[in-house]
Write a protein that binds this DNA or RNA. Structure first.
Length: 107
DNA sequence: CCATTGACGAAGA
DNA sequence: TTCTTCGCCAATG
C-alpha cells in the first residue's frame, strides 16, 4: 500500500504496458485529483529506476524530458512500436493507455 | 513564512 | 492555432 502520493503515481505508471503511454493529467484523474498534473511531474522526476517513466507524456503527446536526455525517451518509445511525427509528437488517440483492466476493484 | 519553479493542463483571447 | 492566464501542489531558496 502506497505510503505517499508519489508512490501511488509510480504504481500507476508501473501498470502501463509497453507500447502504451499515459499523460500526466490522466494520472492525476486516476488519483481522483489528489495530486495535480504538475505534482505528478514532480513525482516522475524522482521516480525510481523500475518505473517506466518514458511512457508518460504531456497531454499533447509531446515529450518533456529532452532537457536532460535529448532523444532518449523518443528512442525508448519507438522501441516499443510507437511512431512520432515531424514535431516529435505521438498519436495519443492511438497509443494512450485506456486505464486499468478493471477485472477487479482496483483504482 | 513567502516567492518562485516545474517532466502539467484547461480555458480564454 | 498559438499565446496567456490561472489553478494546481510539492520542492527549493
Amino acid at each position: 500500500m502506497p505510503t505517499s502520493p508519489f508512490e501511488t503515481v509510480w504504481n500507476w505508471v508501473r501498470r502501463v504496458p509497453a507500447g502504451k503511454v499515459v499523460s500526466y493529467g490522466q494520472i492525476s484523474k486516476l488519483m481522483r485529483g489528489r495530486l495535480s498534473a504538475a505534482a505528478v511531474g514532480w513525482a516522475m522526476r524522482g521516480a525510481p529506476p523500475d518505473v517506466p517513466w518514458h511512457r508518460v507524456v504531456n497531454s499533447r503527446g509531446a515529450l518533456s524530458t529532452d532537457r536532460e536526455r535529448p532523444g532518449l525517451q523518443r528512442r525508448l518509445l519507438e522501441q516499443e512500436g510507437i511512431r512520432f511525427d515531424d514535431a516529435d509528437t505521438l498519436d495519443l488517440a492511438r497509443h494512450a493507455w485506456r486505464g486499468p483492466t478493471r477485472t477487479k476493484k482496483a483504482r
